[in-house]
Amino acid sequence: MTRIVLAFVVAPILATLVAATSVDFSRGPWGGGFTLDWFAAAWPALAPVIGRSLAVATLVVVLNLCLGGPLAWWVARFPSPATRLTGYLVNVPLAVPGIALSVALIGTYPMLRPSGALLVLGHLVFTLPFTLAALVAALADEELRTNESVARSLGAGNARVLWTITAPTCLIAITQAVTMVFALSFGEFNISFFVNPPATPMAPFALFDAYATQRLEPASAQSLIFIAFVAPVLTAIVLTRRWAPRRTR
């Protein structure tokens, strides 16, 4: 069963690889011969778009840590009806479909659209629940809290406790949040499609454009380039998932 599912997940990627290296895919796999021209042709146009997507994803990660970190700390350390309500409200973007949120955003803040600020903020709101999910559990950990009190009793100030105890203990949770947010922002399509001005497209939008306007072969090549950028992030996600339970076991 596992093997069948694995094959199901991998097969489309391999098929896309076949399409991307075929001269004419409509004549069957490697119809007209094998070629890497599609990759070569796709890269110059795609490179700046990927760069833009990477930059936005990085910015969204930083904002997540700066804003989501303190929020998670508050929710974890000051349990009250208010934090519980916050926990639910922050999760709203999980339930509200991305296109609905996008429609709402462009309707409400059209002036923020040209600068790209609306895109970043949209991504931030959309990824915040994942940061919260990863960090709240880690910050609420009883052992961590005891360790912090011990450090404080040994004379460490708040900044030192944060830097030497809290952050290292939560490293796995932070890595989990960072990788997940990065992957989600990098692959986010809905907000990128609606909110972002078409002149400066994000990577997923460029792909969508390629699907609509180009042949299957160059579109396949662009998809694979995109997947290649996602793969390392994905590896990080899996590795942190494997490390995570060991700490609590």
Binding site: L6, V9, P12, F186, L216, F226, L234, I237
Partner: peptide, 24 residues
Amino acid sequence: VLADALLTLPIALPGIIIGFFAIV
């Protein structure tokens, strides 16, 4: 690890790529 990595892969792919897979 390998099985986990491959089974997690689609989470990082935007829906449009999955649609494209279907076309391919």
